[in-house]
Design a protein around this nucleic acid. Structure first.
Lengths: 360, 360
DNA sequence: TTGTATGCGTTATCAT
DNA sequence: ATGATAACGCATACAA
């Protein structure tokens, strides 16, 4: 039971103890090139002894530069984000910035609150998959330079995934396996990313003459996928494209609970490629390279920060289909309801060797 | 191509536009109870129009209270942490604090740097599984109230996992299945958590007369586990306890690559219970309830902050064994090297029904 | 109920 | 090479 650390040691205390002016102490930590080596040494010694470190808050107030950038994500526990965050941190570090991370818990209000509170403490924002309406995003962008990830708002610098290529490849892949009835299990309806993926799916399906049904999952996680599985089982579809890997994994678990075999009775395609090594069977999915998105976002933001100019720039990150083991030819007569007896005339599906396109 | 947002609107601009003093504007946002409702309304309108929000930096400098707490973790991408982080955020929110998250990338120096830089911007620290040496942790604790998770330093408030109970249960479970030779695949040697788990394993094994071998994995991730699998395969052991679920999963993948079947040829126990639903077969593991740790840490810190007193408090979070499908009786003659022919006299292991102790 | 004046810890501008 | 001093934007004690 001891008292609280009272107050942080200040520049004045160091100055006094070292017998120099406050300006000299300040210079020791910000512009040592202006000082005599022995002075620097003395100040450092005293500072060390007292436990002084430059106060970032005061520094920020004085200079207007906080040395931080904000990164706001909707859900840290979604495995799409950690690689993105790590990559962003690494790149920010490299540019001398610290990253303040905020988790909005998928709530627009929390996102708004976080950005408001952070405005003065950071020099710029990176908003990953923001749930906020466009107007408010623009309001925040008016305060600080802002880079978007996974959201397309004209006039703002943004990092987008080229969803259509990956989704098209996925549906073509399924079509080539003879699937004609496919379901898309959607993510949050308000999510821009979901709208993109859904649209791309609808468009490609139309072009290929494939029947596409949409099933809502609302929340992009395992549990929502699991619930969607029940609905899927009632549908006359032989393949499912999920909003993301988590939903896909949930669907696999849900169908497994119902006794379905994957891919024999249902082919599954995920999105993001964040669970590759961890599902069973290994998941066929569209890789989105989230780490690249993090790197590019920070790069773009720091450029804006140092150049003092905002370009209406849009960086597109390609997506690619990675075929693993959850997609194969459908059985002849798809089960339409769990009560229906199994088809006796199931084709021996030619075992497709899991092959990977792309890297690592 | 547009210019940068110049400067954040200040209290003075609002005051002028609203025809009141700066103090009145300040009170509008901090102590509205002192003001006439119509004044508040007018100021709010003007502030809204101008885009003014209170500057947290100036506020912090003036009051000494930043309204933030720091949470530093060694690796966001390790699934042990996201639940902890989310829980911490929720609880902090509840107490009116924002959380600044830092990822130290397992590097003590980065940890040190982050804490130093954040010192003035936060009112307290939460250090999860810190890699920093005790002396430097104490130095930071001298600046700001600090709560530790997964590290036992006397005199500092800390949240610990009662590792021994869970590990003991795991080894007893294996012993009851007739395992006599067990391996412990360790995590980072410098990690306090690893030392705890290893010690607990050694102690329990001794008590039960079981032979325990330690295999190093160095880094707590899938890849390290995968590498360790090669070494494990050379050892005359029938069961393995891994530092955490990630390492366990890596081991499973590595052994699968060598053609081993789990649990028949090797029983595996993980730690943390963060991959439960995602491994195949489902992983027997020791649940550590990381979210609880996050909640408790913030609770403890906010108590310290409001009470102004540091108690040398230590909160113990229980761990429990969750038996799933990666543990079973060993085959009679364990494979000692991959080249050795398979035993023909393998007992038909009585299929153990996966059963769960504990919740959810 | 509102205004005035001062300080928070630092950097930056002038001096010396 | 170093010192003195005025901002930076806000909260607050004190006055009115």
């Amino acid at each position: 039971m001891t008292g609280l650390p009272k107050r942080l040691p200040t520049i004045s205390q160091v100055a006094q103890a070292a017998g120099v002016s406050r300006a000299t102490v300040s210079r020791t930590f910000s512009r040592p090139d202006l000082l005599k080596p022995e002075t620097i040494k003395r100040v450092h010694e005293v500072a060390e002894k007292i436990g002084y470190v430059p106060n970032q808050v005061a520094r920020a107030l004085s200079t207007g530069r906080a040395g931080n950038i904000a990164l706001v994500v909707p859900d840290i526990a979604n495995p799409f984000f950690p690689p993105l965050i790590r990559a962003a941190q690494a790149r920010a570090d490299h540019a001398g910035y610290a990253v303040f991370l905020g988790d909005s818990d998928e709530q627009p209000e929390r996102e708004d609150m976080l950005l408001t509170k952070m405005a003065a403490q950071v020099e710029g924002f990176i908003l990953a998959s923001p749930r906020l309406d466009e107007e408010r995003v623009r309001a925040h962008a008016a305060r600080r330079p802002l880079v978007l990830i996974n959201r397309d708002i004209e006039g703002l610098p943004r990092i987008l995934m080229d969803v259509s290529v990956g989704i098209a490849a996925a549906i073509e892949h399924l079509a080539s396996l003879n699937h004609r009835h496919i379901a898309y299990v959607s993510g949050p309806p308000a999510s821009w990313a979901n709208q993109q993926r859904q649209q791309a799916a609808v468009r490609t399906a139309e072009k290929l003459g494939i029947h596409l049904t949409t099933v809502p999952a609302y929340h992009p996680n395992h549990e929502a996928g699991r619930k969607a599985a029940g609905e899927l089982a009632q549908l006359p579809v032989t393949a499912t494209i999920a909003f993301d890997d988590l939903v896909a994994q949930g669907i696999m678990a849900g169908l497994a609970d119902l006794g379905w075999r994957i891919p024999q009775e249902m082919s599954i395609v995920g999105f993001d490629d964040v669970l590759a090594a961890t599902t069973y069977p290994p998941l066929t999915t569209v890789a989105a390279h989230s780490a690249d998105a993090g790197t590019q976002a920070v790069k773009l933001l720091t450029e804006v920060l140092s150049r003092g100019q905002i370009r209406d720039e849009c960086i597109i990150i390609p997506t690619e289909l990675i075929v693993r083991a959850t997609t194969d030819q459908p059985t002849k007569r798809p089960r339409t309801a769990s009560a229906e007896p199994r088809s006796e005339t199931r084709t021996e599906s030619s075992q497709q060797k899991p092959k990977r396109t792309g890297r690592r």
